[in-house]
Write a protein that binds this DNA or RNA. Structure first.
Length: 421
RNA sequence: GCGGAUAUGACUUAGUAGGUUAAAGUGCUAGACUGUGACUCUUGAAACACGGGUUCGAAUCCCGUUAUUCGCCCCA
């Protein structure tokens, strides 16, 4: 009986890893330009950190965590999201003591025990950023701009930006009461899901897909904002406009984690089954205090990398370039094979991607291999060439072949690679 | 947690009242071309997810398991 990977996990194989590398390199490059610096935190943390940070009543904490007890009897949990761990590190390492705003990013796997479907896995990867220590709306906008740039440069088409303000927790509580007052008389009319949502998270009811007409005249959170919240939200918008980032306001946008305040936003795109959110985030001004740190504001977001990779298109040329090799060395006979080892190493030291045959195959099979690897050149070494101290260098694209001195192979190849695009 | 669908060589599929040796394309192997990949022709290897049941006979029908997939909930 062969082993199988656990449900909801995946093997990312050569051919697909190139896409991942492309996406991750883009993420890092954009973070460099925006001056976000990488932070790496543990893959698991104390369970309580997520209970406090993500929120006791969220689905994530209630039914989706991979929680286990270690040999020291500690309750630990595989991180279901990245923010809580980063906040913990920020507090534990006293990064708030530094003079500047902490602008951090991370890339890595997250774990949630959910049923798999298109674009949803139990182990999935997020690219996330957090800007801590300032409540400037310019930073909210910058975080949105960074994600927008990322999607753009990675080549995704039709990504929509939706923003909302969810106010402070006091305003949300007030709004919840107002909303419930509106909903309760209609309770029997609402779908089953909405009825249960009314108890769990009334703000989500407005997002219902089946019975939208019941919600005409429903109160909007935007009308419940106080002066401070409204100004913040307006400034986020004007900052986005200053950067020419297109966005729409969606007053029904609510996010699944408890910690958001003020700005909440999502990035949406079509093409992954019934899922349309490919990234999201918001401001979380109470979170750091909640997990035992100083009162410091923050804003951040997380981008689903599986979903990004799934939507990648139009990057074939770039990706193909990554998987090609420069040269394949064909050796005929034992003597030639030994000579090839030295040559191969020399080429590799000089920055050339080079490969050879390890299965003792005939020339024809070696040539096929070179073709499969999309080698730009092959070099053929047989008895004749060996005797003369030469090697045949062949351009695989046009079939041209010439003989060069063994000692000159690397130089000749580097010259040829320059001319050959 | 709930519901639907699916499972045939490495890959994509055919297999339609249960009935010989399970078919094809791609890929792989070897050859035509004894030192040259791609195109063409030929050769060979390679599969009914697993376990039960019905039947003279099961890839095909039934049940279970596992996995995959899609949707709900929720989320990236």
């Amino acid at each position: 009986m062969a082993f199988q990977k656990p449900p909801g996990t995946q093997d990312i194989l050569p051919g697909t890893t190139e896409k991942w590398q492309f996406v991750e390199e883009k993420a890092r490059d954009i973070c460099r330009r925006f001056n976000f610096r990488e932070i790496r935190t543990p893959m698991f943390e104390a369970t309580e950190l997520f209970q406090r940070g993500v929120g006791e009543t969220t689905d994530i904490v209630e039914k989706e965590m991979y929680t286990f007890t270690d040999r020291g009897n500690r309750s630990l949990t595989l991180r279901p999201e990245g923010t809580a761990g980063v906040m913990r590190a920020y507090v534990e390492n006293k990064l708030y003591g530094e003079p500047d705003v902490s602008k951090l990013y991370y890339v890595g796997p997250m774990f949630r025990y959910e049923r798999q479907q298109a674009g949803r896995y139990r182990q999935f990867h997020q690219f996330g950023i957090e800007a801590l220590g300032s409540d400037s709306p310019a930073l909210d906008a910058e975080v949105i701009a960074l994600a927008y740039t990322f999607y753009n440069e990675v080549g995704l088409k039709g990504v929509r930006v939706e923003i909302n303000s969810v106010g402070t927790s006091a305003i949300r509580a007030q709004f919840r009461d107002k909303l419930l007052a509106f909903l309760l008389p209609k309770r029997e009319l609402l779908c089953k899901d909405c009825q249960s949502r009314m108890e769990r998270n009334p703000l989500r009811v407005l997002d219902c897909k089946t019975d939208q007409h019941h919600f005409e005249g429903a109160p909007s959170i935007l009308d419940s904002l106080d002066e401070e919240c409204r100004i913040h939200f307006e400034q986020v918008q004007s900052n986005l406009q200053a950067m020419n980032i297109p966005f729409t306001i969606n007053p029904k946008l609510v996010r699944g984690l408890d910690y958001y305040t003020h700005t909440a936003f999502e990035f949406k795109a079509e093409g992954i089954g019934s899922i349309d959110t490919i990234g999201g985030g918001g401001r979380f001004n109470g979170l750091i205090e909640e997990i035992g740190g100083p009162s410091q504001p923050g804003v951040g977001l997380a981008i689903g990398l599986e979903r990004t990779v799934m939507l990648l298109a139009g990057q074939e040329a770039e990706l193909e370039k990554r998987s090609r090799i420069d040269i394949y060395l064909v050796a005929l006979g034992e003597q030639a094979e030994q000579r090839i080892s030295g040559l191969l190493y020399e080429l590799r030291l000089r920055g050339i991607s080079a490969e050879r045959d390890y299965l003792g195959r005939k020339m024809k099979a070696q040539m096929k291999s070179a073709d499969r690897l999309q080698a730009r050149f092959t070099a053929i070494l047989g008895d004749d060439e060996l005797d003369r101290g030469e090697i045949a260098l062949k351009n695989m694209a046009n079939g041209e072949q010439r003989t060069v001195a063994l000692s000159q192979l690397a130089d000749e190849l580097i010259q040829s690679l320059k001319g050959d695009v």
